[in-house]
Design a protein around this nucleic acid. Structure first.
Length: 349
DNA sequence: AACCGAAGCAACCGCCCACGA
DNA sequence: ATCGTGGGCGGTTGCTTCGGT
């Protein structure tokens, strides 16, 4: 049906920042009479303002119960947590933070928290580890030169959907380290079959970073190039699941050394002090969030409750600093160990 | 000291929904 | 059932401040 403007555009109502005098008029009137009808309030209060503008000014800044000042760490964590559940329902989020307005929370999210999550490698929309195609897109150029079975590997069922299904911070960091090891120049985003690429690297495709490349800068630049909108979890073909559990096994083995603290990317962000570029693998959350174990949405079957294998080929990699040692022997070892990904018969470690 | 770009934030815009006539 | 109004909401804009050169 549409809606007529709340204020007569021709009436010359004032816009822009409020003056202290206007604030006083508004506060005095509401204290005396309540706000009543916002549309009639400006005239009654002697304000040359739109009623909507008055309402906004009151609810966001002049209300006596407004809490001003910096958001505390607890408030930050709560906002992030609630956002992971509610999305951009700022007013709903605001109801859980006494004294904070939806507008204030929204602004704080857009200017601080969103960037904070991005820097931690977490998609602020999905609250999942980011899997940025731009970051991945350059890999094939490197691989094409020296990986003989890339084409064959590309036929496997491993795909980016599967990657996301299993996504968690530990895996993201693992991949981040791999990507840094390759440090390819940017290329147009393509439908990269990441798992095929990873599989291919297992056959001696370990490349040292190209000389003269500032890997940190390259990576960070790519990280801000945009987010990948992946299909919903429920769209992942069931056929990929058995193989995924194998990959999960790999990561679980890897993650066994990570000593997770019970946090997941969607429930807590207690490591907010660690930026993505300086996080070590030891900080990584556990590999499978409890909600994912229990939900089982879309037929997904995560290997919940599985015991971590007693010994792992990746033991000792847990403390690897992904930033400082991206080209270390440890990564070379890890890549070589991942050759199992090319063997479809080897489903479990 | 001046300039410029980035960041932060207050305020506005336009759409939507609930509700009453 | 329809329509008009009030109010709420999320997204966006544009001004101000800050920091680097």
């Amino acid at each position: 049906m549409g809606r007529s403007p709340c204020c007569d555009q021709d009436a010359g109502v004032k816009k822009g920042p409020w003056t202290p005098e206007e604030d006083k008029l508004l506060v005095d009137y509401i204290k005396e009479n309540g706000h009543g009808s916002w549309r009639r309030l400006p005239k009654l209060a002697g304000l040359n303002r739109c009623g909507k503008s008055c309402r906004l000014r009151w609810t966001n800044y002049l209300r006596p119960d407004i809490k001003r000042g910096r958001f505390t760490d607890e408030e930050e964590k709560l906002i992030i947590h609630l956002h992971s559940i509610l999305g951009n329902k700022w007013s709903s989020i605001a109801t859980k933070l006494p004294g904070r307005t939806d507008n204030e929370i929204k602004n704080y999210w857009n200017t601080h928290l969103r960037k904070k999550l991005l820097s931690m490698g977490i998609d602020p929309v999905t609250h999942r580890p980011r899997t940025d195609l731009n970051l991945l897109a350059g890999i094939p150029n490197l691989l094409a030169a020296g990986i003989p079975n890339l084409a064959a590997a590309a036929q496997t069922t491993w795909d980016i959907n599967a990657l996301r299904l299993q996504a968690d911070a530990a895996k993201y960091q693992l991949l981040q380290g791999l990507l840094r090891a390759f440090a390819a120049p940017p290329a147009a985003p393509t439908g990269v079959d990441l798992m095929a690429l990873l599989a291919a690297t297992g056959n001696g495709g370990v490349s040292q970073p190209a000389a003269g490349v500032d890997h940190g800068t390259t990576t960070r630049a790519h990280q801000y190039d945009g987010l990948l909108n992946l299909p919903a979890l429920t769209t992942v073909p069931a056929a990929t699941l058995p193989a995924m559990s194998s990959f999960s096994g790999l990561l679980s083995s890897f993650g066994g050394a990570l000593a997770g603290d019970g946090l997941s990317s969607t429930t807590e962000l207690g490591h907010s002090g660690a930026s993505g570029s300086s996080m070590t693998a030891a900080m990584a959350p556990p590999l499978v969030a409890a909600e994912e174990c229990n939900a089982g949405g879309g037929g997904m079957s995560t290997p919940c409750g599985e015991e971590t294998p007693a010994s792992s080929p990746f033991e000792g990699l847990g403390n690897l600093n992904l930033d400082d040692e991206f080209n270390s022997d440890s990564w070379r070892d890890l890549l070589e160990q991942m050759s199992w990904l090319n063997n479809p018969n080897e489903q479990q470690l």
